[in-house]
Amino acid sequence: MPTTSTPERTHQSAVHDAGWDYTVGSPHLRHHRVNARVVDACRQVVARVLDRSGTCRVLEVGAGHGAFTDHVAALGAEVHVTEMSESSAALLRRRFAHNRRVTVTHDPTGAACHTGPPVDVVLAISVLHHIPDYLGATRALVERTAPGGAFVSYQDPLWYPRRSAGDRAADRAAYLLWRLGRGDLRRGAATLLRRARGEYDETNPSDMVEYHVVRSGVDEEALRSLLAARFASAHLDRYWSTQSPWLQSAGERLAPPNTFGLIATGRLPR
């Protein structure tokens, strides 16, 4: 069963502490069109299950501060949230203290989300690139998905080796411009240099929290193949995203995709 290492758990808690603002570095939270894309995908799969069965059990892995939890709970789903960061889990408990549809589990090892009763929908939003064995983690999550259920993952970086040199260069430039706007260009440049060298530092939160730094992104085709074998439909949604608000609009029109989502529906009988 895929779990996280002690260094990663330490850095996740340190980086995503009580004062952490997920929105700053998260295009799916920061930009309206990207956010709407993710919200629509989550709502649609949950609404289909509710229309079919009248109830929907949702497992949301790594919910952060609950930006998407609200949307699916408002539809009438029962949402079980897991969160690796202790401070984020505590915030989620306070935020949803009076919502009986939402339960929160602090999951420091990543193991809790793989055990328990079957669920109808799994949501993994901006999560897979944090997990070293993301394919193994996805398999375990699919095993918890009931027949007819769905798996939704969004906002993970495309597999770098499939992207052109120019595409990757534009992506790096957008990242550095965002860092420049934040006043921490040096940190961004150091991160990109480690990526180019293929280095991995367990003492550095940037490397431990963002595993795609050394893993060359997330293999979206391998994930689609995995899901296609277990679901009636597995749709891959490639799109452009960047942290910079003033580059996002231009990138959506002109830049090649650098990010992806996966929507798998109709979980096949085991």
Rank of each mutant, 00 (worst) to 15 (best):
P2R: 04
T3K: 06
T4M: 14
T4F: 09
S5Y: 03
S5H: 05
T10V: 10
T10Q: 10
A14E: 15
D17I: 08
G19T: 13
D21H: 10
D21E: 14
Y22I: 02
Y22Q: 12
V24N: 08
G25I: 09
P27G: 09
R30S: 11
R30M: 09
R30E: 07
H32N: 10
R33H: 11
R33L: 12
V34I: 13
R37F: 04
D40V: 01
D40F: 02
A41E: 02
C42G: 05
Q44L: 13
V45K: 02
V49T: 15
V49M: 03
L50Q: 10
D51W: 01
L59K: 02
V61W: 05
H65D: 15
D70T: 09
A73Y: 00
G76L: 03
A77Q: 10
A77R: 04
V79E: 01
H80L: 15
V81S: 01
E83R: 10
S85P: 03
E86D: 10
L92C: 08
L92Q: 02
R93M: 10
R95Y: 08
R95S: 12
F96C: 00
H106I: 03
T109G: 07
G110C: 05
A112L: 09
H114D: 10
T115M: 06
L123H: 07
A124H: 04
A124M: 10
I125A: 06
V127S: 04
D133M: 13
D133S: 13
G136W: 03
G136L: 03
T138N: 05
A140H: 06
L141V: 11
L141W: 13
L141T: 08
T145Q: 01
T145H: 02
T145A: 01
A146H: 06
A146M: 11
A150Y: 04
F151S: 08
F151T: 03
S153Q: 08
L158N: 01
W159T: 12
Y160S: 11
R163Q: 14
S164K: 09
R168L: 14
D171R: 14
D171N: 12
D171I: 05
A173C: 07
Y175F: 13
L177A: 13
W178E: 06
R179D: 00
R179S: 02
R179V: 02
L180H: 13
G181C: 07
R186V: 15
A189E: 10
A189H: 07
A190D: 15
T191N: 08
R195V: 11
R197Q: 12
G198R: 05
Y200V: 12
D201I: 04
T203I: 02
N204Q: 12
S206G: 08
V209L: 10
V214Q: 13
V214G: 14
D219T: 06
E220V: 05
E221N: 09
A222K: 03
L223S: 07
L226I: 03
L226D: 00
A228T: 05
S233E: 13
S233H: 13
A234E: 12
H235K: 13
L236W: 00
D237Q: 09
D237N: 12
W240C: 14
S241T: 11
P245K: 03
L247Q: 01
L247H: 00
L247D: 00
Q248R: 07
A250F: 04
G251C: 07
R253F: 04
A255V: 01
A255P: 01
P257F: 01
P257E: 09
G261M: 06
G261W: 00
A264G: 08
A264S: 07
R267L: 14
L268V: 08
